[in-house]
């Protein structure tokens, strides 16, 4: 630090010290007010006020978190649905299917039986998706068949192509 600045800083410090004494000479009526507030119990209501606001807020937060947990739980893990599938006349296999497909317990069951089991589960998203796929396949197949039949029909109704005149 430059000597000039050091000297000025010393002046600043000296002035701060000197004026601090004057600030300290300024007395207030704090003691009287404090003792009065203590005897009125002013120290306690503030804490009560805090709880007055904190308790409902805390209760609302708990209810909110619980509701959110229920909503998320419902969305993430749907109720497990159980479908009993008859397998021939001898035995039955039980399959537990969840919407997420995580808790599947697949017994000895064929793919066809599994598909039919899902189709019989009205709230099963997987089954609904399978149904949609089946419908799309059926529609596509029907359309293809119809188009094929139309082509065949058109071909059969058409006159045979004119043969070029035979010369001579």
């Amino acid at each position: 630090m430059e000597p000039e600045h050091r000297k000025t800083d010393e002046l600043v410090a000296a002035r701060l010290d000197r004026d601090a004494e004057r600030e300290l000479a300024d007395t207030g009526s704090v003691a009287l007010a404090v003792m009065s507030r203590m005897q009125r119990g002013a120290a306690e209501p503030k804490r009560r006020r805090v709880w007055l606001f904190a308790a409902p807020a805390l209760a609302a937060a708990i209810v909110g978190v619980a509701s959110l947990a229920v909503v998320l739980g419902t969305a993430g893990r749907a109720p497990v649905q159980t479908t009993t599938v008859a397998r021939g006349e001898t035995a039955a296999a039980t399959e537990t299917v969840s919407e997420t497909g995580r808790s599947k317990r697949i017994g000895l069951i064929t793919a066809a039986e599994r598909l039919s089991a899902m189709l019989e589960t009205p709230r099963d998203l997987e089954a609904e998706a399978a149904r949609d796929t089946t419908r799309r396949i059926a529609r596509g197949t029907a359309r293809t068949i119809a188009q094929s039949l139309a082509i065949l029909g058109r071909l059969s109704s058409e006159e045979p192509a004119e043969t070029p005149p035979v010369a001579g």
Binding site: T27, G28, A31, M35
Partner: peptide, 9 residues
């Protein structure tokens, strides 16, 4: 309180 009130103030 009286001893320290001016300092806290």
């Amino acid at each position: 309180v009286r001893r320290y009130e001016n300092r806290v103030l």
